[in-house]
Design a protein around this nucleic acid. Structure first.
Lengths: 161, 161
DNA sequence: AATGAAATGAGAGCGCG
DNA sequence: CGCGCTCTCATTTCATT
């Protein structure tokens, strides 16, 4: 139930275009065209096609959390007690609904979920743990890692093979 | 040494604009203006200002890793042996340089680094571990979590206080 | 069948009041 | 800050290979 599993074939032009867009999607199509060796309309068509196919999922602005007073990034591993699909789905939607949770992955290994959380202050994180973890009796245990430095942040994908 | 630590004050208009841009930065300024109760030029001035101040760090396209054949997301906790600032900086730049590493945080707690990695196949991850972890004698230990589901993925920041 | 060149139209960027 | 203009860029049309 994840992705529409539709793999459109991407050629070298597409990949070069994507590499540019994921670095800066405000790049003029003319500039992109010059970089990849195509005309602007050709670039435009490919971009439109890839957007429709879902290869390009969104066009977003990346903000500085600190400027918004959301200066603390926290990393959490969560281990649950019962892993029935009902319980897992419940946990997923609960995590997905919390605005403080930026990223949530369901994983294999010593933990079941990994979360990336951004909050204004530790007090907010504390409140969140009370609500999300202590208030949920299917949570066995969780481990907290507070980020001192965001060394690298991005959702970009290596485009070259 | 990371951010210029400059906190420009953001008013309610700015925050509303940011909330829209981080969802879709191709939204016309006129539409944004209608949504927030400002004229298009006013919106433009604010956007330009925030881009210059670094509140808006980048404008990027979000791609579907699966469409690019990068279907495996992995989560890694790394613990190092020596935590001298020289060693830490070395590790930071090493992690930042690896294209497979999407995100890297320097953290407190039981681990020192947390990484989010995207690769085409497990074999690629294995090769990466050899190069990055086994090939680095300052790495004490690392724990791997393979993502079965990306429940929630985003770099967006809660804009409302 | 997809491209490139030229024409059209929408939106961004600036100076004005 | 809002209103106008200008200009760039995105988008469509059409001939071409």
């Amino acid at each position: 139930m994840s992705r529409p599993g539709k793999f459109p074939q991407l050629d070298a032009f597409d990949r070069k275009i994507l590499a540019i867009l994921q670095r800066d999607n405000s790049t003029p199509q003319r500039t992109i065209g010059e970089a990849v060796g195509l005309s602007a309309p050709a670039v435009q068509r490919r971009i439109k096609r890839m957007a429709e196919e879902g290869v390009i999922q969104a066009n977003v602005a990346v903000l500085d959390p600190a400027a918004l007073g959301q200066s603390i990034t926290i990393f959490v591993e969560v281990e649950v007690i019962s892993e029935t699909s009902k319980q897992i789905e419940e946990a997923k939607s609960q995590f997905a609904a919390a605005p403080e949770i930026q990223q949530c992955y369901y994983v294999t290994g010593e933990a079941d979920f990994v979360l990336v959380i951004v909050v204004p202050a530790m007090a907010d994180y504390e409140a969140l743990t009370r609500r999300l973890f202590f208030g949920n009796n299917n949570v066995k245990r969780f481990r907290t890692f507070v980020a001192m430095d965001r060394v690298k942040v991005g959702l970009s994908v290596p485009v070259e093979r």
